[in-house]
Amino acid sequence: MGKLLVGERSVVVPGEKIAEGLDYLPAHGAYRKDDHILAGKLGLLTVDGRAVKIIPLSGRYMPKRNDVIIGKVIDVMISGWRMDINCAYSAMLSMKDATSDFIARGADLTQFFNLEDYVVVKIVNVTSQKLVDLTTKGPGLRKLYGGRVITVNCNKVPRIIGKQGSMVSLIKNATGCKIIVGQNGIVWLQGEPMSEVIAIQAIKKIEEESHISGLTERVTEFLEKSCGKIEPRESSEEQNDEQSEEAQEEQQEQ
C-alpha cells in the first residue's frame, strides 16, 4: 500500500521523496523513480485522487493555449506582428487573426498595431518548438491606449484575479481604475494618476503576501485606508466583459 511521505499542500524541493509505492501516480512536476515518486521542481504539493502534482511557486511564464495575455509589439512583419509576451519565446499575431477588415496587399500594418503598442491577445496555438500564435478576435481582446503597464510574478496571477475575479474587481471598485490582468504576468491599468498608484500598491501587496491567509481582508483594509469606504460601483458594460473574461481564465487555472 502506497503512502504519502510529506503532507499535502506543503512545499517540496527537487529530488524530495513525495510518495512510496505504486498506488500514486506522478502528474505535473513529479516523476517516478523505482518505488518512489520524487519532486521534479520546487512547488506546492497537491494530491488529486491518485495523481500527485506540484504547483509551481516560481518560474517564468510558459505560453499555454487559450490564455489571455498582454503582449508588446516588437516587430512589424510582412503579414503580421511579432510580440513580446514576457517569456523566452516571442509570439506571432498574423494579419488574418488580427482583424476582419480588408487589408490591401502591401498595406502599412502599423496603422493597426505599431511598435511598442500593448495589445490584449489570446493564445491560439503553441507548437512543440514553442512557436506561439495569437489572436485579437474575441471578447475583451483589443489594443490598449494609455494607462500603465506593470509586470508581476505570473504564478501569482490567479491570486490577483481571485475567485471569479473577486480580487481584481475589489481593486477596480475601490480605485475606479480599469485593470486587465494577463496570464503572463503583465498587468495594464488606467485611471486617475493617484488611484493608479494605489491600485499598483494593492497588486504588489497581493503578489508579496499571497501565501498568508486572510489576504482579501488585508487588501480590503488597505484599499479602505487609501481611498475611503468602498462603494459598490455601477459597472459599465466593458467592465463586465473583462470580468467574465477573467473569471473564465480563473476557472481554467483551477
Binding site: R9, S10, V11, V13, L42, L44, L57, H211, I212, S213
Partner: peptide, 15 residues
Amino acid sequence: KNALKEKYKISGEDN
C-alpha cells in the same frame, strides 16, 4: 533543502 523551504515556508497555507 532547508534554505529553499525557509524562503517558501509560509506558502504552505493557501487561502
